[in-house]
Nucleic acid binder design. Structure first.
Lengths: 132, 132
DNA sequence: TTGCACCCTGTACCACGGTATAAAGTCAAG
DNA sequence: CTTGACTTTATACCGTGGTACAGGGTGCAA
């Protein structure tokens, strides 16, 4: 699979794929005789992982380590394991903060739009949806 | 409280505070006779909210609306409420994706560093910590 | 009243992530 | 073979968020 199809399946620009490769986020694919990049389906998964991590606020530099960890790391070592654990910790902290932000927004809504009109407040639904 | 103290309490650069004001993220404080900005303690909370939201992957443009919503919006209206609800939804999606990423990392670890040495895997602790 | 720390506005610069363009090669269909 | 869609590398540019600097004013304290 060549770069054009890969990029379009992953939903990114071709230039972006090459950028990620240069930055070491995406491992270099084999090449055809003519020098064209030849990707396996796995690559699109990696790209999607990268975009997802990015939306979670990780930088490309951080994502570089996330990708390595996700792929099983290099050689098993305490260093790799600890790095992964600290990343997992970071993620847990992000989750906790997102929950706080959600509650802050919820409070904002309670103090405003729904004031005196609890029946109009779609909020409880939203909360129920997440506390399930 | 003047901008220097405010910025240092919030942990940001003075220039950053002024930038946020220019971008409409931070409402313009009153001024002293000399034209100095005069902040209340509330402002540092707003700054911290902004930084936190930023680490969660929201852009300043998005955070601008988050801040308005958190502060109780303008005038109560269905529009404001719906916007808040959709932001809450976004946050829930981010949380779900972070959980997926965490699991992906966890799997990466399982396939690698802890292979055959389950007693060395600190992973279960990390998971327990979050599933509590 | 001089010094020093702070503030003001405005402009310029920076890193990051992404994208666009140029100049050249590949390849399959007509 | 030629045409058109695709690829290659390399370079240049852009928006976002942040910061630095210049040139000037404020205010307090020795």
């Amino acid at each position: 699979m060549r770069i054009g199809q890969m990029a379009s399946e992953a939903g990114v620009n071709i230039q972006t794929v090459r950028l990620y490769e240069r930055m070491g986020l995406l491992k270099e694919p084999r090449r055809t005789r003519a020098g064209y990049r030849d990707y396996s389906a796995e690559a699109t998964e990696t790209i999607r992982f990268i975009k997802s991590a990015q939306e979670m606020g990780f930088t490309l530099r951080e994502i570089k380590t996330l990708v390595r960890l996700r792929d099983g790391g290099d050689h098993p070592s305490g260093g790799v394991r600890n790095l992964a654990l600290s990343k997992i910790d970071e993620i847990n902290q992000k989750i906790a903060r997102l929950e706080m932000m959600r509650d802050a927004l919820t409070r904002g809504l309670e103090n405003c739009a729904c004031k005196g009109r609890p029946e109009a407040c779609l909020l409880l639904k939203a909360r129920a949806q997440t506390k399930q």
